[in-house]
Design a protein around this nucleic acid. Structure first.
Lengths: 160, 160
DNA sequence: AGTCATTATCTTACTCATTTAGATAGTAAA
DNA sequence: TTTACTATCTAAATGAGTAAGATAATGACT
């Protein structure tokens, strides 16, 4: 394979990775019995810890009304709890509830993939790992930049 | 950084890549003025070419009623066209319409990212590229396997 | 203290994508 | 030609999300 072909093949792989990633996350949400937005929100809350409702809105890009609904559903399902912010009584803090059954379920979902990845990575040499970390970091950064650019394109062209 | 830390850092990067990918695709759909499902469907139709409506349902995992709606909207917007299958008159074939304006729009969206990626890749040596192709292929394959496993878990546990 | 603008969340009414169930119509097999 | 099956569409119901505004707390300025 010529150099340019390999470059194209890798680009193609990145695109396939997009598709697979989206499919995987959809499958995860399905197994958990959560809609994809609720799953994403729960993921944010368990990763970043308790946060005000408004912060969840910023992170998901949804309106305050939608956020209220998400918290209602997650609370109903026993994944999170609303508490008052003692410093500012307008605010509602959403905090994750430690839920053994759910945690086991989530582990059962993610550990197998994590192990698969870990196994592949372990087979690489030190220098290969160092290179891969660089390459993936670079790719993530560039994708993030492009998303940012796209969102500003949208703001400048399609706003009324 | 210790070897095990680098492995964890790369795993972490893959997860970030998931998040960024999902954000990017959402931004693309927004710019195109399509809902994410419609965009995904149009992407499938333009990648795989004309297909029966039912096939689109399989690929997206949606019901026939939802597929009818998607095709209605894409047809309305001038992205696809319905044609009869001469071999089986029950079937409706959905085919992409070549649409200069849309194609330019899509190019304007994807080319900048493609160029960014191309530029990074070009800076790598031949052996680095060969390694990267292997590593990404492996990662995609493992993720695909896991999605498949998850979908079967769901079928075996949560079906009535 | 009292007023005013601001901020955080919730509520209500509405929109619209998707599901469910079943209608329609064509195909295939007995 | 009857029966079962398949492909798509339709209609009604569901439910997530938006928009606008209500509610209530905060902070700043007088």
């Amino acid at each position: 394979m010529k150099r340019e072909e390999i470059i194209e093949a890798i680009s193609q792989k990145f695109r396939e990775m997009s598709t697979e990633t989206i499919m995987f996350h959809q499958a995860v949400a399905d197994v958990l019995g959560l809609h994809i937005t609720d799953h994403k929100s729960y993921d944010l809350i368990s990763r970043f810890g308790a946060m005000p409702a408004g912060r969840l809105g910023e992170l998901t890009g949804l309106t305050t009304g939608a956020v209220t609904g998400i918290i209602d559903r997650l609370e109903e399902a026993g994944y999170v709890r609303r508490t008052d912010d003692p410093k500012d009584r307008r605010r509602t803090i959403v905090e994750p509830i430690r839920n053994k059954k759910l945690e086991r379920k989530i582990e059962a979902i993610f550990i197998p993939l994590h192990e698969r990845i870990h196994k592949i990575l372990s087979s690489y040499s030190d220098s290969e790992l160092a290179f891969l970390l660089d390459a993936t970091t670079e790719h993530v950064d560039q994708t993030r930049e492009e998303s940012k650019r796209l969102r500003s394109v949208k703001r400048h062209t399609s706003m009324k």
